[in-house]
Design a protein around this nucleic acid. Structure first.
Lengths: 228, 228
DNA sequence: AATCGTCATTTTGTATACAATCTGGCACAT
DNA sequence: ATGTGCCAGATTGTATACAAAATGACGATT
């Protein structure tokens, strides 16, 4: 489930990327952005000249995405973008809740002062975006905050897993937008776990992050089931 | 991180397996069994005629395993079986602890009576194997018990994630054998969470399973660092 | 009229051929 | 003697060609 493809720029950014690697990134972005809609077929040749590559690297990319669960491969019947199954989203949220709890606890114990300061800066930005009614900005910052907290846990396995799950959920959220009430609650929850993080209260931070995840799940699933 | 490749036999076992699919299973088994040792290179052509397939399906299989983290692909430099990094194992255990806690809680809430009975049967087998001093049998049954508990949680995402993590740990355990003392403790911990499971005590079962995971981690990491 | 069987088309699965890159050793200069 | 530059061999990355399977339509049969 390795999702992190960015290498820490040591000295020279030699840009040694293979085609299938780039294809994975491209296709993942297309799927997450909704350019390839859930349930839609993924014809190989069409995508090949669209991406300007041959079938071999594209197919290798599809296998990787299939391992990630973003596409499904039916033998001899082609690949389809994995449909969004509300039950699966619920399952993912259930696991994510546990992961966020863990991340919150560990972040308190292992985060550096600079990271906490950075987090505060991001949170301030989040508050500003809420005040400005900037929904897309809010969501982006929101994602970055959670990613940052997970990074502070100093656990690459946790980070990779959380990232993969967040991706799956992102697809669902793109079609199920929260209402204003949920938005307000979300910000309040952020205020809550930020307070716990600031005082390095590992237990509280973990619990609040878990609760935030669960409440988000409720809202998303409600929109998903209600909207359909 | 989909690890489950077995389809529930509906009516006809049509055995529609593609080569790369079979190659993934084969290679994964070889890696977990230690036939391909950690850190060793994975020459494509050699494995090709060893498995009797061409390079294309083998390469596709390697990408999938790379996504799972079992092999690492260096561009133009070939693939290597991911070396066992004690820090990574520690990280994986850290996440696994949270997953096992979740699984234990959910299993209590969602497992059927037959499943609990089955679990009891497996546990009895485990006790017998301990008494008989059958280490390999004990480990196999141990794995099956944990897999069964996770299955009882009725959460495919959790199941797949736990399975992937368990695989990584399995590789480490194959070279770091527990001592007799740890073996005894392990059985005692099993008795503990089994008791909690029998009375459907979700909180206790989760906590005990988590603790079991943490104690196992300590032992494995000790053997890993001490043995090296 | 409806259903089943058959076939052409299309798409996928696999194999092989070609191009690009890396590895290791050797000659040469310092 | 040591380090540098270059070259041959080997290995991987990509593209294309061929084989196998599924889809959909058409016609035959009941």
């Amino acid at each position: 489930m390795d999702t992190q493809n960015t290498v820490k720029a040591g000295a020279g950014p030699i840009r040694r990327e293979t085609l299938h690697h780039a294809a994975v990134a491209e296709l993942r972005a297309m799927i997450l952005a909704g350019a390839l809609r859930p349930g839609s077929r993924v014809p190989e040749v069409k995508l090949c000249d669209q991406l300007g590559i041959s079938r071999t690297p594209l197919r290798e990319a599809l296998r990787v995405l299939a391992a990630d669960g973003l596409v499904e491969l039916r033998p001899h019947r082609g690949a389809v973008v994995t449909p969004i199954d509300p039950q699966e989203i619920a399952d993912v949220f259930e696991v994510l809740e546990a992961l966020e709890m863990l991340a919150g606890r560990l972040a308190c114990q292992r985060g550096t002062a600079e990271e906490f300061a950075d987090l505060d800066r991001l949170h301030a930005q989040l508050v500003a975006q809420f005040a400005a009614g900037d929904r897309p900005g809010y969501f982006t910052t929101n994602r970055r905050i959670h990613a940052r907290i997970v990074a502070m846990a100093r656990n690459p396995s946790l980070e990779a897993t959380q990232s993969g799950f967040a991706s799956k959920i992102l697809r669902a959220r793109s079609l199920a937008n929260d209402d204003a009430e949920r938005w307000r609650s979300s910000l309040a929850e952020h205020e809550g776990f930020m307070a716990a993080l600031r005082r390095r209260d590992a237990e509280a931070a973990g619990n609040l992050l878990g609760a935030h995840s669960r409440l988000t799940a409720n809202a998303v699933l409600l929109a998903l089931n209600g909207g359909a």
